[in-house]
Amino acid sequence: TRVETATETAWISLVTALHLVLGLSAVLGLLLLRWQFPAHYRRLRHALW
């Protein structure tokens, strides 16, 4: 049971790290898009909202 718990903890930390990385890359990508294509971003936002 001790090994299982350790594996579970490792998986949880791995998944958390993955989610953090994905979230950060998504935010960075959005910022980059907004910085590179302001007109396109505004049009996209206008279409979405």
Rank of each mutant, 00 (worst) to 15 (best):
L14P: 11
I12A: 14
G29Q: 00
E8L: 02
T5K: 01
L20E: 01
L33V: 11
Q36G: 10
L24C: 07
L18V: 13
Q36A: 06
L14E: 08
V15C: 06
H46V: 08
L44N: 01
L18N: 02
W11K: 15
W35L: 05
L18Q: 02
W49N: 09
T16C: 10
A6N: 07
L31C: 10
E8G: 11
R45L: 11
F37D: 03
E4F: 06
H40W: 13
A6L: 04
G23Y: 02
H19P: 15
R45F: 06
T5V: 03
L30W: 14
R43T: 08
P38D: 07
H40V: 12
L48Q: 01
W35M: 04
H40R: 10
T16V: 15
L30G: 07
Q36V: 08
A10P: 10
E4H: 06
Q36N: 05
A39E: 15
R42A: 14
R43H: 05
L31H: 04
G29N: 00
V15Y: 07
G29L: 12
R2L: 10
T7E: 12
A39I: 13
V15F: 04
H46R: 05
W49M: 03
P38W: 08
L48H: 01
L20A: 10
A26I: 14
V15P: 05
A10W: 15
V3R: 00
H40I: 13
A10T: 08
S13W: 15
L22I: 10
P38K: 10
W49A: 04
A6F: 04
E4K: 06
S25V: 09
F37I: 07
S13Y: 14
V27A: 07
Q36T: 05
I12M: 10
F37L: 12
A10M: 13
Q36C: 12
V27S: 06
T9D: 15
A26Y: 02
E4A: 09
R45M: 12
R42P: 02
T16D: 02
I12V: 09
A47Q: 04
L32A: 11
V27R: 00
S25N: 04
L48I: 10
Y41H: 05
Q36D: 02
I12G: 09
R45C: 10
L28V: 14
L24R: 01
L30T: 04
L31W: 13
A10H: 09
R42L: 11
L33D: 00
A17W: 04
A39L: 11
E8C: 05
Y41C: 13
R43A: 12
A47H: 06
W11C: 09
A17R: 03
L22D: 00
L44Y: 03
L20C: 10
V15I: 14
L14R: 09
L48R: 02
V27H: 01
L44H: 01
H46I: 05
F37M: 11
H46F: 06
L32E: 00
W11G: 15
L20P: 02
R45E: 03
A6W: 04
L48Y: 03
G23C: 13
L22T: 06
L14D: 03
H46T: 09
Y41N: 03
A39R: 07
Y41F: 12
P38T: 08
R2D: 11
T16R: 04
R42V: 08
A26V: 11
E8F: 07
L22M: 06
T7P: 14
L33Y: 08
L44V: 08
L28D: 00
E8M: 05
L22V: 14
A10E: 11
A26D: 02
S25K: 03
T5F: 09
A47E: 05
R34C: 15
R42W: 09
R2S: 14
R42H: 10
R43N: 09
T9Q: 09
V3L: 08
H46P: 03
L24V: 09
L28T: 09
V3I: 10
L14A: 07
T7S: 09
W11D: 07
H40L: 14
W35T: 06
L22R: 01
T5R: 01
A39C: 12
V27G: 11
L18G: 12
H19T: 15
L24N: 01
P38F: 10
L30H: 02
R42E: 08
P38L: 11
T1E: 08
L18C: 11
